[in-house]
């Protein structure tokens, strides 16, 4: 039985916003990436699954149960971390977490303290006084303390420093090993790459690709930019896999997809001033990669 099952899920607000005809499934024990640029409809999809908003048509099922009809039952086993964390300001961290735990019919104290320790979260502070990153930590503990079977994360890493990000990812991997499925929404491909088994890519409310991470990686390309001491010889990079070639006054930039060694050998022949090799961002993937297929 799939953990999440979206069936032609549509939510329209009358304008360009919203989501259209989304269909995909998240299987048991899977870490599923959900990526797309800002405003693509990731949060709308998640909010519909959580019953905060209602679908215009189509349906969303979690644990095989409809999200609209069986909301409270489903939510017992869901942990959710919103993209922006807002809590009752006049509460202490501890009070908020206990309040959050009080909705679940189980003792969450031990797990709560464990999580707070791993993330180095001071539970005696007031929520008002916390920095963005620390508020995010409260969100993480709050989302995981009841050991949910499905963890839904909406842009979870914003505000976390790299060290905490690592710890957070390890926490997620640990939960995943224990059997939790994870839906990980993000606009940063690289953070999804590390964790996820499969990804759905969404743009302007429509699903444009659904792939295994391994397949996507094979097809991923790199962005090269180099600065040579001398003029670049004509046809130097006329090899297979190079696109978007741009060259001016000894500077060149291009995209490359294929065996990295081939292009590196070519570059090694040059007398370089500088070299940049970058992961393309999502927008570029959409523009150069999926635009071709569409």
């Amino acid at each position: 039985m799939p953990i999440i099952e979206l069936n032609h899920l549509t939510k329209s607000y009358g304008g360009a916003r919203g989501i259209h005809d989304l269909t995909f499934q998240v299987e048991e024990g899977e870490i599923f990436g959900f990526i797309g640029p800002n405003g693509a409809g990731k949060s709308t999809t998640i909010r519909t699954m959580l019953g905060l908003i209602y679908p215009t048509s189509g349906s969303a099922k979690i644990f095989g149960k409809d999200c609209v009809q069986h909301g409270p039952e489903i939510k017992r086993h869901i942990g959710y971390l919103p993209s922006e964390v807002f809590y009752y300001d006049n509460m202490r961290v501890k009070d908020l977490l206990q309040y959050s735990a009080s909705f679940y019919k189980k003792d969450c104290r031990k797990r709560m303290i464990e999580l707070a320790e791993v993330l180095e979260l001071d539970m005696s502070k007031r929520i008002d006084d916390l920095s963005l990153g620390n508020k995010k930590k409260v969100g993480i503990v709050q989302g995981l303390l009841h050991e949910p079977k499905l963890i839904i994360l909406d842009e979870p890493t914003s505000g976390l420093d790299p060290l905490m990000q690592q710890r957070f990812f390890s926490l997620l991997e640990e939960e995943n090993r224990k059997g939790a499925a994870i839906l990980f929404s993000s606009h940063i491909l690289s953070e999804v790459q590390r964790l996820c088994d499969r990804v759905a890519i969404i743009k302007e409310g429509r699903l444009i690709a659904l792939e295994k991470m391994s397949d996507l990686k094979d097809r991923t390309y790199k962005k090269f930019k180099l600065q040579a001491k001398n003029e670049l010889p004509e046809g130097m990079f006329a090899i297979e896999g190079v696109t978007e070639w741009n060259s001016k006054n000894g500077e060149a930039s291009f995209l490359y997809q294929g065996d990295i060694n081939i292009v590196m050998r070519r570059i090694a022949e040059l007398d370089l001033l500088n070299l940049w090799v970058e992961e393309p961002d999502l927008e570029e993937i959409f523009m150069h990669y999926y635009a071709k297929e569409a």
């Binding site: 959580l50 019953g51 905060l52 909301g71 409270p72 039952e73 939510k75 017992r76 869901i78 959710y80 919103p82 922006e84 807002f86 809590y87 009752y88 300001d89 959050s100 909705f103 679940y104 709050q142």
Partner: peptide, 16 residues
């Protein structure tokens, strides 16, 4: 205060 996202994600129906 945008805490609806916190509260309505708990196992609690809107009626309750």
């Amino acid at each position: 205060d945008k805490t609806a996202e916190f509260l309505l994600v708990k196992p609690l129906s809107r009626g309750r």
